[in-house]
């Protein structure tokens, strides 16, 4: 992602999340997000298959019917 792409992404996502951002803050946030983007790219290089699950998956709690 270029700086311009990141800034555009930040501004669009902020609207989607109803997060008010002025231009100055959006620029600073985009800088942080670009650093994280570089981190995320490191993980893209790790081969993961369809059966590599999330580290923990949801477990339903025991169900007890209500007592009248």
């Amino acid at each position: 992602m270029t700086e311009a792409h990141t800034l555009a992404y930040v501004q669009a996502c902020a609207v989607a999340l109803n997060l008010p951002l002025d231009d100055e803050r959006a620029t600073r946030v985009a800088l942080h997000l670009q650093r994280t983007c570089a981190m995320a790219a490191l993980l893209d290089d790790v081969p993961l298959g369809p059966h590599d699950e999330l580290v923990e998956i949801y477990r339903p709690a025991p169900y007890f019917p209500p007592i009248d």
Binding site: L17, L19, V29, H32, L33, T36, A40
Partner: peptide, 11 residues
Amino acid sequence: VDRFIAGALQP
């Protein structure tokens, strides 16, 4: 605060 916002916006 800006790092928190950047985190909230991550894909």
